[in-house]
């Protein structure tokens, strides 16, 4: 509050000459982009919700689909996506610490935290690749479309048992008879069919929503890496301005924010 203060006459903040938002243009521009991106993700998730409500009788229960965990034989529903959430939240924390260090122009500290954020992002992408692999590969037994049109899944842990949507199941000779007259055997998942439920929409939404989010994470890692190089070369020290870290930070937190919603609406409910 010294020489650069204009005379405080009674005028509106919108009269020009200063920033009504008290945010510099670059940061505001990032926010405007994030709002539009948030609308895109919202539309995808709302479309998922709409069609799930439309096909509520055949839609797979996520807790029965995402049951794999590395090195564990058996069903561990949601633990793996829980771990992925932890990785992403953790990398969001390291990013906010990098932004915080940037305010004090501590280059070494920014390098450390930004580097850890990149590692976190790569860990998340690796986890997602692992999850996609198991989703596409599916179980050993797959699923059957029976002669009467019903859809039945098998369970690798309980061989010879056919499970229907809603918890009913048959086993033994009855199951064998149904399998021998089945019209279709589905293994794994692709864009046309999947063994998790009698609707291709579930697979389509899985690939599209988690894929779109994963691509955001990938772009975020690339952008973080570029900023990391700029910081390391001292470009931001010469400018005496670490706002760039803040801007990529906003993008990275947004990616974390979207995952929070994907986690709830795709995996939990």
């Amino acid at each position: 509050m010294a020489a650069d203060t204009t005379v405080a006459t009674k005028k509106s903040v919108w009269d020009g000459g200063h920033s009504p938002f008290n945010v510099r243009w670059g940061k505001l521009y990032m926010w405007i982009f994030l709002v539009s991106d948030a609308f895109t993700f919202s539309s995808l998730l709302v479309a998922y919700g709409t069609l799930r409500h439309r096909f509520t009788d055949i839609w797979p229960t996520p807790g029965e689909v995402f049951t794999h965990f590395p090195f564990i034989h058996g069903h561990v529903p949601l633990a793996y996506v829980g771990l992925m959430t932890f990785i992403l939240i953790m990398s969001s924390v390291t990013m906010v610490l990098a932004v915080d260090a940037g305010h004090f122009m501590k280059r070494k500290s920014v390098q450390l935290w930004l580097g850890l954020t990149i590692v976190g992002g790569l860990m998340f992408l690796g986890s997602q690749a692992w999850e996609w692999y198991h989703f596409i590969e599916g179980s050993k037994g797959g699923a059957y479309v029976l002669a009467d049109g019903r859809f039945a899944r098998t369970d690798d842990l309980e061989p010879g048992v056919l499970k229907f949507h809603g918890g009913k199941s048959v086993e033994g000779a009855e199951a064998q008879a149904l399998i021998s007259t089945a019209t279709k055997h589905i293994e794994g998942a692709n864009l046309r069919e999947n063994e998790y439920g009698n609707t291709p929409l579930f697979g389509n939404f899985f690939f599209f929503i988690t894929g779109f989010h994963g691509f955001h994470v990938f772009s975020g890692v690339v952008i973080n890496f570029i900023v990391f190089i700029l910081v390391s070369k001292g470009a931001l020290d010469r400018k005496k301005d670490y706002e760039l870290v803040e801007k990529v930070g906003l993008y990275w937190h947004f990616v974390d924010l979207v995952w929070v919603f994907v986690f709830t609406f795709f995996y939990l409910v």
Binding site: D4, T5, T6, V13, H18, P20, N22, R24
Partner: peptide, 14 residues
């Protein structure tokens, strides 16, 4: 919407 610290020419570091 009027607050004294936004009567700067630009967003100051302080």
């Amino acid at each position: 919407f009027i607050s004294p610290d936004i009567h700067h020419e630009h967003v100051s570091h302080e």
